[in-house]
Amino acid sequence: MTAMIDLKNVSYRYPVSDDSVLKNISFSIEKGKFTAIIGNNGSGKTTLCNTIRGFVPHFYKGELDGEVIIDQTKITDYQLGQLGEKVGYVFQNPFIQVSGVKDNVFEEVAYGLENLGIPVEEIKVRVEEVLKLVKIEYLRDKNPFELSGGQRQRVALASIIVMDPEILVIDEPTSQLDPIGTQQIFEIIRLMKERGKTIVLVEHKMDLIAEYADDLLVMHKGELVMQGPVREVFADPEFEKYQIQYPHVTEIALQLQQSGIPLTFLPIRDEELADALNRTEVAAHD
């Protein structure tokens, strides 16, 4: 497999700051993988996203050491606009992503494509498709500024998906959404993965990460402290010391283990708990 995102010994310091926000970070993400960046607030997750999409250092300036390679090309060799087509970025705060120059949702979603000079007929088709996909057709004529937080979050995601970038960097896309809306967003992300997109997601909802993501990057105080397949990272005793939320079922399983109930494996999804417990019962009867 080819690496889509490759970071080698990356450190970064914002201008006028004394401390590095990112410290010597190296990892490689293969094309088509769904990787979740987790870590407590202030650990450097959003800065890491900004590095992948070239805003560090193109836009924020500051000092970047090491190499960031996106699809075989060093980030310093891209124009910011070229990167924008390759890497779609969905803002953490949907309240600031809305362009402010369009007065309805349909045009807001079309805005990016217009800027790329795509023919009008094609824009219409693509916007229609995405509005449907993200379930916001009913909002098409609404002013983006009159939407609720959850609705804006969907519009923000739609505006990026419509551009069809190879890489999607999504920063906490569900923070304002109810549980069912959240599930729907994860389903959309899964669909993007099926279309071969490379996905980087920042998220705190571990139950959903356990269900949908392939790999984890664990950030702690600017360092990448753990990385690997989701299941392996949650099962590693080291994970506990970073005080990050476990999937709820994993938290319960760990407490059960401490209370002396042996489990054959550490469940990370709700439906696995029964399995883990049943197997122990079978073993006990043998």
């Binding site: 549980p179 599930q183 709820h248 938290e251 319960i252 407490q255 709700d270 439906e271």
Partner: peptide
């Protein structure tokens, strides 16, 4: 209300416990 019950309630259901369990 299209609410999703907390994870614990869902786990309790999957394990066939009688209704009422909510906390870890």
């Amino acid at each position: 209300s299209m609410l999703k019950p907390p994870a614990v309630a869902q786990m309790a259901k999957l394990l066939d416990f009688s209704p009422g369990i909510l906390s870890k």
